[in-house]
Design a protein around this nucleic acid. Structure first.
Lengths: 111, 111
DNA sequence: TTTGTTTATCGTCGATTAACGATTGTAAAG
DNA sequence: CTTTACAATCGTTAATCGACGATAAACAAA
């Protein structure tokens, strides 16, 4: 028992949660920034820029790919990663909408 | 060993990761939306709106509070929660900046 | 075909998360 | 001073995460 209850929330809530979870580790935030800076990146280059091992980088890339934020193309023995245009656009939109739904609060709340 | 290496990333990356992690569960996304809709909310009301138990809601609120996104004020036997003005503003800014740093990509990437 | 380079996957381990019911704590009301 | 609400914490369980080294897989080059 005590299984997860994610299914019982709205699709939007779930999607945002999936995206946010993908951003929920500094390494993945860093990877996305690197990919944006360079437009694309071979996995090995990322490993050089990050303070974690090759296998761990690969894991994080896998998670980002699973969330649809990143895609990889095989290029000979290496793999070239870049932001997934559609997935990242969707993610941006969902986050933007959420920030719109939950606007800044005037100091001093109602309670 | 094999401890977490979060410390080895930049402060900005870590902060974004903390915020994103707090948003990384649909229940917490839902809670923030509810708080924004109603400006404030007693814990019990949230429990009624959400498909999870009281103790679980309390746990999620604790995490949101730990991330600085929410604050609770004791009001008699109940507790009134609302968005934490400063913390939520900071979070919004960090996310906005990040979205600015990682802009949408034109379809068809470099690789 | 063998070698070297690069990336993915496997297996493992400890830590953390998500969930619940049960219990405790706190404060108003009687 | 009890009782009654309400919320937080405790204790537990299963699942997931984060990390690593080791191994496998893919492919270019020799």
């Amino acid at each position: 028992m005590a299984a997860h209850k994610r299914e019982q929330f709205t699709p939007a809530e779930q999607q945002i949660a999936v995206i946010a979870k993908a951003l929920g580790h500094p390494a993945r935030v860093a990877i996305l920034r690197l990919l944006a800076q360079r437009q694309s990146c071979v996995c090995g280059e990322l490993v050089l820029e990050l303070p974690i091992s090759q296998s761990t980088v690969s894991q994080h890339l896998k998670e980002l790919k699973a969330a649809g934020l990143v895609q990889g193309e095989v290029d000979g023995p290496r793999v070239c990663y870049c932001l997934a245009p559609a997935g990242w656009a969707t993610a941006r939109q969902l986050l933007t909408d959420f920030l719109h739904d939950v606007p800044p609060v005037a100091p001093g709340c109602a309670c």
